[in-house]
Simulated scan of single mutants.
Amino acid sequence: MADSAELTDRDPRAERVHHAYAGNRLLLAMPEEARAALKPAMSLTALSRGTVLFDVGEDVRSTYLPCRPTMVSLLVVTPDGREVEAATVGWEGALGGVVSGGLKPAYGRAVVQAPGPAFVVPTARLDEMRQRFPALGDLFTRYADSMIAQMMQSVACNALHTIEQRCCRWLLAAHDRAGEDIVRLTQEALADMMGVQRTTVTAAAKVLQADGIIQTRRGRVEILDRRKLERRACECHGQVEAHFRKLLPEVAASAG
């Protein structure tokens, strides 16, 4: 894989890469012996915006653990080619064969929305480690549960809440994963993920900008007032985060 570095004890960059474990909270929360056993099979790669990690129907052979500020969208693709985001994955988790064993055909499409680094491990190797280390299997099972919760909440949000509320919810999720006040995405990408017209998102962004909550520039959104953004959003973001903290307290704690 391009721009990858094998993580072995003989690698002169091993110490620097070790610090990068902190870039992915799920990896950092793994039992130390399980993480050490996975280490020879892991690589660190740079993901570019728009890269498709896997597509509908493909056998998922690699599991990705994004590091800040990388963000990946899991998209449902309709028969006519339209895409709607079902979940967002950043430094808190992983995607691709997270819990399934054997053949892993993808139901949706995984697309990089915010570029950056990610750890990659062969899914078959991760399966082996989950069987060898029950605590690792439990960690990934709980993470999968949190992903299901995020998807369920997204369905409710899309059906019940306004475009502005949904836009604020997504910006909060992106801000959590970015590690800075600049969220690097276009309004067109945001509209695609929300399943609405770009003009609809542009109108919502103008209202938020006029109220001093965000500042939009080409290809980026700056969060000026997080608290106001939280007040303007629906309850969905907070509920998903609260459930995540209950299921994965060791992962949530690593955010510090």
Rank of each mutant, 00 (worst) to 15 (best):
M30L: 14
G23E: 13
A252F: 11
D211M: 06
Q239P: 00
E85A: 14
V17N: 06
V99F: 10
C168D: 11
A253Y: 07
A189N: 06
R16A: 10
V99N: 01
L229C: 13
C236G: 09
L47P: 05
V155L: 12
A20L: 15
G238N: 11
M42P: 01
R130T: 07
A22G: 14
S4F: 14
N24H: 07
V112A: 03
V120D: 03
Y143G: 01
D176Q: 09
R25Y: 14
S4V: 14
T162H: 08
R166S: 03
A210S: 13
E58R: 10
K206H: 11
V111T: 13
T200A: 04
A34N: 08
A41S: 13
A149R: 14
E92D: 05
P105D: 05
I214G: 06
L247M: 13
A34Y: 03
R218D: 03
H237I: 00
E58Q: 15
R109F: 00
E188C: 01
R68K: 09
T202G: 06
G116E: 04
V89M: 03
R184G: 05
V56R: 06
M194G: 00
A191S: 13
L172E: 04
E83V: 06
Y143S: 03
P40F: 05
G108N: 09
Q131N: 10
V84S: 04
E230F: 08
R231H: 14
A114R: 06
A106V: 07
D11N: 15
D181E: 15
T123E: 04
W91Q: 10
A87E: 06
V52C: 09
E241H: 01
A149D: 03
R10K: 12
L28Y: 10
A189E: 15
L28P: 03
R232C: 09
K206T: 11
R10P: 00
E241L: 08
E83Q: 13
P69V: 08
G102N: 08
R61T: 15
L126D: 01
V112M: 04
E241N: 02
M147Y: 07
H243G: 05
R166G: 04
Q131K: 03
D181L: 12
Y21D: 02
A174R: 03
E250S: 12
E230M: 13
F244C: 04
A118S: 10
Q165C: 05
H18G: 10
L7C: 01
K39W: 07
D138Y: 06
C167V: 15
A159L: 14
P115F: 02
M1G: 11
R132T: 14
D138P: 00
T200H: 01
R231W: 08
L139E: 01
P134F: 01
F119Q: 03
L26E: 01
R226L: 15
R109D: 00
A149H: 13
C67E: 12
P40S: 04
E180R: 12
V183W: 05
V76Q: 10
Y143A: 03
A149W: 07
A173E: 11
L75H: 13
M129Q: 08
